[in-house]
C-alpha cells in the first residue's frame, strides 16, 4: 500500500510538472466561469450554483483524457515500464497508484471552481449542502472518467491515440447515449417494450441526468453504484491489459 502511494505521489508531481496540466486547468476554469456567468450569476436570481455543476461533464470529458493520456503510454514509450515492472511491486498497485495520483490532480482541478462559490457567497447566501453533494458527484464521475482514460493509456504507447479514444468514450457517456435515447423516443410513436428498455439504459448510463441529481442535492444510490462499479470495471480492465502485455 505504501508503494501505491509512492507511485500516486510521483504521478501527481509529474502532472504538475507538465505544461498540459496548466492548460487543462485554465480551460476548465474558463468553461465553468462561462456556466457561472450565464446560468448562475445574475442580479436578483436565486443563489443556486446547481446549473454550474450539472453541465461540468461537458468540459471534463475533454479535460480528463489530457490528464490520463500519458500515465501508461509514456511509460511504454520511454521504456520506464521496465524499471517499474521489475521493481518489487504488484501490477495492481501500479494501476491503483497511477489512478490515485490522477484522481488527486483531478480534485485540484475541480476544486479550483470553488472560486465561483466564494464569489456567489459574497453576493448571496447559497445553500451549501447541494454544493457538497455536487462535489461528491463530480468526484464519483471523475473516478469513472479517469479509469476509462487510464484504460486507454494502458492500451497504447501513443499518448494522442489514448487521448482521442478515451475522449470518444467519454463523449458517448456525456452526450451520445442520452441523445440516442432521446432520439429513439421521439421518432417512434409507440415504441415496443424492448426499445423502452434500451432507452432507459441509455439514459441511466448518461452523465447528465446523474449530475442533475447530484447538483440538486440528491444522492441516489443507483448513481453512486453506477460510478463505483464502472470505475472498478475499467481499473480491472487496465490491470488485465497490463498483465496481457507480458504474454505478447
Amino acid at each position: 500500500m505504501l508503494k501505491t502511494f509512492t507511485i500516486a505521489r510521483r504521478e501527481l508531481m509529474g502532472l504538475f510538472f507538465s505544461p498540459v496540466a496548466y492548460v487543462v486547468l485554465v480551460v476548465y476554469l474558463l468553461f465553468v466561469g462561462l456556466l457561472f456567468a450565464l446560468l448562475v450569476f445574475s442580479p436578483g436570481a436565486v443563489a443556486d450554483p446547481g446549473p454550474m455543476f450539472a453541465w461540468n461533464h461537458l468540459a471534463l470529458m475533454f479535460v480528463v483524457p489530457f490528464i490520463t493520456m500519458a500515465l501508461f503510454s509514456e511509460e511504454y514509450r520511454s521504456g520506464r515500464i521496465e524499471t517499474l515492472r521489475t521493481s518489487p511491486i504488484s501490477d495492481f498497485s501500479i494501476v491503483l497508484g497511477k489512478f490515485l495520483g490522477a484522481l488527486a490532480f483531478y480534485c485540484v482541478i475541480i476544486g479550483s471552481s470553488l472560486v465561483y462559490i466564494l464569489i456567489l457567497s459574497a453576493f448571496g447566501r447559497p445553500d451549501f449542502m447541494p454544493v457538497l453533494t455536487s462535489y461528491f458527484g463530480l468526484v464519483l464521475m471523475g473516478m469513472l472518467m479517469l479509469s476509462i482514460g487510464l484504460f486507454f493509456s494502458a492500451c497504447t504507447q501513443h499518448q494522442v491515440l489514448a487521448a482521442i479514444s478515451s475522449c470518444a468514450v467519454l463523449v458517448a457517456f456525456g452526450i451520445l447515449f442520452q441523445a440516442i435515447g432521446g432520439l429513439l423516443g421521439s421518432i417512434i410513436s409507440q415504441p415496443p417494450a424492448w426499445l423502452n428498455t434500451v432507452q432507459r439504459v441509455m439514459t441511466y448510463m448518461s452523465f447528465e441526468p446523474q449530475m442533475q441529481h447530484f447538483s440538486m442535492g440528491l444522492v441516489d444510490t443507483s448513481h453512486v453504484a453506477f460510478f463505483l462499479t464502472g470505475t472498478f470495471f475499467f481499473l480491472m480492465l487496465t490491470y488485465l491489459v497490463l498483465e496481457s502485455r507480458k504474454w505478447r
Partner: peptide
C-alpha cells in the same frame, strides 16, 4: 538490481528525488 537498456528515468525529477522515489518503490 537492473539497469535496462538506455537507462530510462523521469526527466522532470531531480537526481536525489528520483533515487528516493526508486528506493521507496523497492521497499
Amino acid at each position: 538490481g537492473y539497469l535496462p537498456e538506455n537507462a530510462p528515468t523521469y526527466t522532470e525529477m531531480r537526481v536525489q528525488e528520483y533515487l528516493a522515489y526508486r528506493g521507496r518503490l523497492r521497499g
